[in-house]
Every structure is written in structure tokens, then in C-alpha cells.
Amino acid sequence: MMNVQQRKRLYKHGKQYLGLLVYTLPGILFFLVFKYWPIIYSFILSFKRWNFVGKMRSVGWDNYASMFGKESFTSALMNTLYYIIGLFPFFVVIPLLLAVLLSNIKHEKVQNLYRTMFFTPTILAFSIICLVWMWIFNPSFGLLNNLLMLFGKEGYAWLSEQQTAMLSIIMVSGWKFMGSNMILFIAGLVTISDEYIEASKIDGANGWETFWHIKWPLLSPTTIYITTTSVIFAAERAFTPINILTNGGPGNSTTNLSHAIYLFGFQYFNIGLASATAIFTSVLFLIVTGIMMKGMGGFGYYEN
């Protein structure tokens, strides 16, 4: 038999659990159905042969085994790596440079004006941006070739030549995210205490030394975050510029992992292969994010 005290406590606990479940239930349902179930289902599908309509057949590890023999997969994987390298100057180096320059402007209104303007491309639809750039890349009347002509240089067929197609995608992506990464670096710089910088100045450090020994190390959480997002961008979000600007061509020279998944799934209707590639990409992401979390110190869950 429970005494009154115990019964009261049980009632109170029950009420807490019930309340929690009522409020989190919509979230739990949506996350379960549209986030967790898809991973499980993708995993199941990656062991099948299926084309959306016919009969599903189990094929064991066949999809994974054949994946590495497919040119469209291996070049997507290699290209993802090239994108990561090619995007680094646009995602990290230039934004960091701009952030350091901008933080030297002490006039708040002027600094704010610069920030606002640099950030503008971030809020625009990537698909629209890509099409606008497609016009800028136009071989006959595009802005870029017209500019080159001004300097007496011959233009390129930017998007259809092997040498320039990937560069074009990198330029558009870099342009789109330069400002937002700059904003993140500024936010990181603001958190660095003035005392450190004052102290280093007293020690006789010049601007570069202060940057290299004080600011750069203290910025590492931001740098790690941006580098991680650029890896994820290269493998996943670069889909938009790739699909619009080159459709992966010429040949497979500009595909990435997400574009390969799209091709396998929605153009060749090879759902098994597409799912296997998706699972491969997820594992890759998990590793990269895991490293990032280690570097930044978790999601910040503190029970107060």
C-alpha cells in the first residue's frame, strides 16, 4: 500500500511526464516519420534492386560493391574532394580577411552598412542566383566574357568546357556564401576579449603577430564550424548550382555526391544504388560532424 506522500509524488511525476509528452508529441511524430524512418528505410532500400514501380528484389551488398566500380560514383566522390579544396579560399580565407578588415572600422554605422551589403547574397534564392550567373557566364553575351573582351582577352564557354565548368560552380558558390561566413567570423572576433589584444600590443606584437598568435587560435571554433559546413556544402548543397549550371557535365566532371544520388534515383530509377550512395554520404557526414563536435565541445546541453 502506498501512503499519501508516495501517491502524491507519483501523481506529480506522472503529471510532469504527461505534460512533457503532450507538448513534444507533434515534434516527436514529425521527426520520427520524416527524419528517423527515412534513414531506416534508406538502409533497407540500399540492399534492394527497385525502380519505384516494379517488384523489389533483395541483392545483399551488391549495391555497395558495384558502387565503387561506377564511374559516375567515383568521379562524384573525387569531385566532392576537389570542391572542398576549391571552396576553401572562398569559404574561409576571403571571409576571414574581410572580417578582420571590417572589424578595424570603429564607426558603427559604416561597419553596419558594409555588413548589411555583404550579407545580401545570403538571403537570395540559390537557384535564382545560379540562373543569373548562368547569364553572366553566357559565352556570346555574358558579362564575364564582355569584361574579358574589354581587356582584349578571349572569352570561355565557361559552363561547357572541362577546365572552367567546376571553377564556375565554385565561383558562384563562393560568391553566395562569402558574406555569411564573413558575418560568422566577425561574430567570432567580437567574442575575443580586448584584454588579450591589449596585452599582446604591450608585448610589442604587430598587427600580423596579434592576428596569428591571438585571434586565429581563439577563432578556431568558428573556423571548425565553417570548414565543416563547407564539407557538407561540397557533398550536399552544391547540388543546386551543379544541377542548374552544368547538370554534372561535361561528362561527369562536375558531379558531387548529392547529384550522383539524384541521378541514380530520379534519372536512372536505380533506387538501390541511390540509397547505398545516400547511406555512404551519411556515414561520411557523421564522421565529419563528429570531428567538428569534438573540436567545438558538443551541442551545449546543460540541464540547469
Binding site: 548529392s258 554520404t281 560532424t289
Partner: peptide, 30 residues
């Protein structure tokens, strides 16, 4: 719900939501 009520499963539910951040769009797409 997670801040107003205090139970032993708060942290579990919190991570249940947060961990989906690392699920790439491509894996949920099909």
C-alpha cells in the same frame, strides 16, 4: 515542454530532436 516540465527523459527527447541535424537531405529524400 522541455523547459516547463522536468523529467528523466528530457535529455533523451532533446537529443532525439537535435541529432537529426546531421541527417543529410539526400538520405531522407527518396
Amino acid at each position: 515542454g522541455l523547459t516547463y516540465y522536468k523529467t528523466r527523459i528530457n535529455e533523451v527527447i532533446f537529443y532525439f530532436f537535435i541529432l537529426t541535424m546531421v541527417i543529410p537531405f539526400q538520405v531522407t529524400m527518396i
